[in-house]
Design a binder for these strands. Sequence first.
RNA 1: GCGCUCGUGGUGCAACGGAUAGCACGCAAGCCUCCGAAGCUUGAAAUGCAGGUUCGAUUCCUGCCGAGCGCACCA
Length: 564
Amino acid sequence: MNYKQELAEKLFEVLGHEMDVKELEMLIEKPKNQQHGDLAFPCFTLAKIIRKSPNMIAQELSEKIQSPTFEKIEVLGAYLNIFLNKKLVSEDTVAEIIKQKEKYGALNIGNNRPVTIDLSSPNIAKPFSMGHLRSTVIGNSLAFIVEKCGFKPIRINHIGDWGTQFGKLITAYKLWGDAEKVKQNPIKELLTLYVKFHEEAESNPSLVEQGRSWFKSLEDGDEDALSLWQWFRDESLQEFSRIYELMNVEFDSFAGEAFYNDKMDRVVKLLEEKQLLVESDQAQVVELTDEQLPPCLIKKSDGATLYATRDLAAALYRKENYDFDLSLYVVGNEQSLHFKQLIAVLDKMGYSWAKKMVHIPFGMMLKDGKKMSTRKGKVVLLEEVLNESIAMAKNSIEEKNPNLTDKDTVAKQVGVGAVMFHDLKNFRMNDIDFSLEDMLRFEGETGPYVQYTYARACSILRKANKATETSIQPSSISWEKEWKVVILLTEFPNAIKRSFEQFDPSQIAKYIVDLAQAFNKYYAEVKILEENADQQARLALVASVTIVLKEGMRLLGIEAPEEM
RNA sequence: GCGCUCGUGGUGCAACGGAUAGCACGCAAGCCUCCGAAGCUUGAAAUGCAGGUUCGAUUCCUGCCGAGCGCACCA
């Protein structure tokens, strides 16, 4: 199945053990140009070791290597170009996929060890904005990827349900709030209050002081403050769950910031015991000068805790309760410094597992090239975008496939798929300038494009009206026209491996677009349902494509409707 | 000022240090009496600047320019 490895082994046999198999495998590449074959081995590195011209080495190697897997070996300059045996590789690959079904591409490297994933983490009383979309969608996909690699994912939604913004919110509600309005449209009304607070605070600084004092009351357990907090929290969570349902995202834990309120004293004590805590400007900090980082603030001068304190408590709690092998934090790039500090402090505390914590940063969702600001109300609401996308999908269905049953379900799958895919298709570190137009595009490299390809392939299998055979019959097919599709099918496990190693779902998104493109070209060129001796083999190929496309979409958290 | 991230056709993005730098959107021209045109085919169009390492640099290193984000009592 791994042809690269096979080639590396052959090279190793033929060579006088100048390099080991791993090194040789590293050098093997897939040519950009298909005319150069399926695998290529450049001889430059070898030339240095053996002290012969690379062209000569290539020539010599080409004469010595033989295997039924390689049907042709060409020498082009310093390159050894290997052409795989199309019939053998195609029939093996297709048979393998049909046999393994959605298990194809699974990697058994995790040994069922737990991996916690901190994702989504919206702030209560603030709207679920496009910014949270990124963490939710990337984290969700990473959970599936990690699972595919044999780990046990634990999705944790570290809800932002505590902090000074609640003091501000309570202040605003006390001054201008209306219970009825909040009940009717909680998030929007709370956002309005939050924005108003910041507008007013510019000319009236005492508001900030009031906010701070309300938060202090909250921390001290003041009943009035607590009941307001509880109310805001409940209303917000209800709204969030509606969005998660739309996107089909589920969590194993909603333990947010408030959950750690009673677990922070312990952290502070531990830090004191380990003599890491230092007073600085009346605040308690951990110095990180050795690590060349700014100090990490643990307690404010008024004794209140901070973000870092909470995250330390959360890290300890997660280690103790989940015994994670890996702890991923899918949080924006702008918090890189915070996670460096967090990990550094844990390391200083002597926890060896600190290095198992990985911050997975991603670029910002910008608006007109600038950061969106909740305070100024410059946010785009995710739910509105999703609903608009669903409505657009519905229109497309009415126009293109009016007889479809269950249009609403499919519209949801396609509309939401478009938004999620748009976020996953590019390398996560790139900033994204928000564009509704781009997000709701259904043509080109988009979720709906992949879904459409899948639906078309399913349609063929339906029309063939033969259950996909468990094995493909020997056929006269040459696999020439199918070859681009086949070679991509063999690449799926690699795409999964890359996405895991780099914690990068876009590797899979790009892969399924490539596969969909190759299949669509094949579809345009070959009449698959033509009755002839090759039909069975072609249908098996189509079945393989549906399996891999569907599994690829699943790993991104996107649904795959069979008709659309 | 210091730190992190990023500079590729008009726009959005690809390219384990390798061959002629790929794809999509948009634009221009085609393709449904034929398996779903949310598709396919063809065309025009790009590596910020200057050095360095290397047989070979879009990729690695240094400097500069440009963008975004951070840099103690927000998260």
